[in-house]
Amino acid sequence: MRIVEVNNLNFSYDGRYKVLENVSFFVEEGDFLGIVGPNGAGKSTLFKLLLRFLKPQSGEILIFGKRIEEFRDWKSIGYVPQRLSVEHTFPGKVKELLFSVSHDKRETEYLIEYLKIGNILEKQFTKLSGGQQQKVLLAIALSSNPKLILLDEPTTGLDIHTLNHLINILLDLNSNHRKTIMMISHDIGTLLKYSNKILCLNRKVCYFGNPTGAIEFIEEVFGLRGILDGAS
């Protein structure tokens, strides 16, 4: 089943400069789609269009087979944003945040156990490390038991240990819990290694397919010829 289908999508913020041009791709149930591309390639904009924060000038987006204009079941999508502009004095504890989006106490307790965040529940979100914050955001995203999870650069700024831990969680969600994952990252090596599909975006789709065939196109887009040898 196709979870996401995008056909000839065009978007521009100012009506002139196209941030996305004729973008088409699809995501099937159980896919782990890695999205790569340089800064300003339209990756985060694509997520905002998929979440209906923005409306495209033209093109079609289908979510779970429904046209996005008619799609209402937003709780079946989990979203981990790229950058949170939370006020640095925000006093909310992790526990308060989790239970503000929780509809099922037992489900939330399972999530806390699953993500091993029981030790930080009483801490204020703004005082957590980057890795801990990412896990809390993932917990919030998973709180409605979504079938599709969108992650916008969740690995930025994480040390190698925290990065591996987060990737292992995502792989487990993907393979053992049948969650479909779409992840934007600049960590090309990680995406090539763990994704089953790659979307290389630079305002247009430069490549869409399996990771093995992606290297050549990614090298071209980033100007990295030879650097990614052996990455996959």
Partner: peptide, 19 residues
């Protein structure tokens, strides 16, 4: 609206996805 206000204050984007 306490819970909704709390998550909206934290992040409008996340709150919107949460319905």
């Amino acid at each position: 609206f306490y819970k909704k206000l709390l998550i909206t204050t934290f992040s409008e984007e996340i709150a919107r996805v949460k319905g």
